[in-house]
Design a protein around this nucleic acid. Structure first.
Lengths: 137, 137
DNA sequence: CGGCATCCTGAGAGATACTG
DNA sequence: CAGTATCTCTCAGGATGCCG
């Protein structure tokens, strides 16, 4: 039984795919910004440095775990800086790096596209749902 | 015990957050393109109409389930069209709509950013890892 | 060929409690 | 205040099998 099954072939393809991913900057970036909280945290820092608690207030609904995790990721990737001030109650400030800022800028056209075209998407979705009310029509 | 716990407050915030999301085009778009296979499928269609099997070959490593699911989502959102030709073995072609194409265009600057700056990100990550080898040396 | 229904698993999201 | 550690549990995603 040395013949490859469909599953085997897919598995193989997946390995190649992963290897491909590792070398593809676009995919890496996408993996990064596709994280739900990443863009929100980035946006929260758009106006300048913020304390941890301030960010957690701006990014409504995030848990400490997720926020910390996200900010650490951003710090590690050189998109934000983390500054600890050893006061009695510790104070930690986060700030966009130039790199992080440039990313935020690059994200703006996308935002603009969304604002311009998401209504069309919504309309299309409506039409589609009406035409094929399979799920919950 | 009418006082709100931290969890309660977070829960409340989360509800507001979700309501906010529902009205925020940028977040909607992000939710859409953050899907792993969406951009890959979109890219696969960049060169013109493709058959289902052709796409599944281009988007290496995807299962039928995910591909079908993704394509349906894109169709429903008006980003691709789906054309069924009732031959003996059925033939289905997918093609970008103008809307889908314009989205793909908007994605390109992001791609460019990635190609320009992901090395910096990688370098930052390296430095960070070396400075704080907490996880895996 | 293209696609749906079904079952199953595991990565990740959140809640909770503790620390400096 | 700003985390870390631990547990649970959901649900996206993959495998498999059948249908038109």
């Amino acid at each position: 039984m040395a013949t490859l099954t469909a599953a085997d072939r897919r598995r193989l393809a997946r390995v190649e795919y992963d290897a491909f991913l590792a070398a593809c900057p676009s995919r890496q970036l996408l993996d990064r910004i596709s994280d739900k909280w990443v863009t929100l945290s980035l946006t929260a820092l758009a106006d300048g440095p913020q304390r941890y608690s301030e960010i957690s207030r701006r990014v409504a609904g995030v848990s400490q775990k997720m926020l910390t995790q996200t900010l650490r990721g951003l710090e590690r990737d050189g998109l934000v800086t983390r500054t600890v001030t050893p006061m009695v109650p510790v104070r930690v400030d986060y700030e966009l790096t130039p790199l992080g800022d440039s990313l935020l800028e690059t994200l703006k056209p996308l935002k603009r596209w969304a604002e311009l075209h998401m209504v069309e998407v919504d309309r299309a979705r409506d039409t589609f749902e009406r035409a094929a009310p399979s799920a919950n029509g």
